[in-house]
Design a protein around this nucleic acid. Structure first.
Lengths: 111, 111
DNA sequence: CAGAATCCTATTCGATACTG
DNA sequence: CAGTATCGAATAGGATTCTG
């Protein structure tokens, strides 16, 4: 079955991780689970609206898990699903490529 | 030197290949040099304007070469530069990931 | 063939305010 | 803390026309 939706198969990949901030989010999550506020701090130029939008889409597409802890104050943690883990190699390479282009050590944490 | 432009280094990668159709173009070019019209045929939903815009940006960023043959009718060929070649592994993985998600054989040619 | 230029609409996105 | 809702400005992107 060739999908009629895409002309080039890689479009299926882009539909999932092509969002403006999705790869950045995933690169952060591949280093470990993160709370909403942690992601915000790591990406100060991204508004809450944008961030939650991208997170919701990633969740819908089965790439990340959203875990709500029933506490006060609220706590929500995001993590990679298995499907998300299957992107790890791609994410690592993309991070390394960016580092190299910036002339940095191959460290993608951004911290 | 930590770049002040990005908070997470992978953003440098996205600045180069994050454009809406850039990865698709690169996935086509990694299979061999292509003329403008060949790219158009391979991506029918993309307008000429969009296509040439993305091509120009990729050229400006040193990812692809634009070779003009002085013929009538005009002929222009696009190919990966060495910098573009350094993306090959990422492109291959992204293609394979999309194929897998579509349930296809790992063939990214789209033909 | 391989675009560039123009016009115009649809979508994105930021700023701000509000909620459980 | 972790969001949602609303509104307006900016931008992206399609359709069309023109050119060497």
């Amino acid at each position: 079955m060739k999908s009629t939706k895409y002309n080039v198969p890689v479009e299926a990949t882009l539909e999932v991780i092509g969002g403006k901030w999705k790869v950045v989010i995933l690169c952060l999550l591949k280093e470990g689970d993160k709370r909403f506020s942690e992601l915000q701090r790591a990406m100060p130029v991204v508004t809450k609206k944008m961030l939650s939008q991208q997170l919701r889409e990633l969740e819908k597409d089965g790439i990340i898990n959203r875990t709500v802890y029933d506490e006060i104050p609220p706590k929500v943690e995001y993590s990679l699903t298995e499907e998300g883990e299957s992107l790890r190699e791609i994410l690592n390479l993309m991070c390394a490529w960016g580092d190299k282009r910036l002339g940095n050590d191959p460290d993608c944490s951004g911290t």
